[in-house]
Amino acid sequence: MNKLLPSPLLSVSLIVIWLLLNQSLALSQLLLGGLLAWVIPMYCAPLAIKGSRIRKPWVLFRLLAWSATEIVRSCINVSRIILFRRQHQLNSQFIRVPLHLRDVTGLAVLSCIINSTPGTVWVEILPDTHELSLHVFDLHDEAWWIDTIKQRYEQPLIEIFEGASQ
């Protein structure tokens, strides 16, 4: 079972994508999509990252909903800054956030969320101290940013991917 169907989530999303692309629920498309969804994950299995699995899906949904509202809010903020602020009043800086999250998939999700939010861009994780280096478009309070990222994003991700709710 595990050999034949290495990652059920990938299979389900592949068949959904195939049906959406073809815009039909006909039996032939279902069969073809099912074949693709069965064969492709077997060949992709060596690429998969071991050991990461989603432990608490509802926390993930809450995190995604929160980050969607945050994206819309900061979109409005950043466009207001671009339109009306003088350039020399902009305080763009690099900040460093110490991270406790170690799971690779969790870090990838964190980077996607941070980069999708306008106003923050992920630079890299400093390898020796495991700090996240981050560029902020308009920095007003460094401690607030660090707090927000740690509590709003990192804490749920630790719960989802590492299971320990500290």
């Binding site: 994206i71 819309v72 979109c75 950043v78 466009s79 671009i82 339109l83 350039q87 902009l90 763009s92 980069n115 999708s116 939010t117 306008p118 106003g119 861009v121 560029h135 478009f137």
Partner: peptide, 28 residues
């Protein structure tokens, strides 16, 4: 919103500031 995001490319002086502009147009 897309226009504002690309205006950011023209108006702002540094690359590190400009990179925040397209994020608006892409997501929103």
């Amino acid at each position: 919103i897309t226009l504002i995001g690309t205006l950011c490319l023209v108006r702002l002086p540094h690359f590190y500031q400009r990179i925040h502009g397209p994020a608006i147009s892409i997501t929103f």
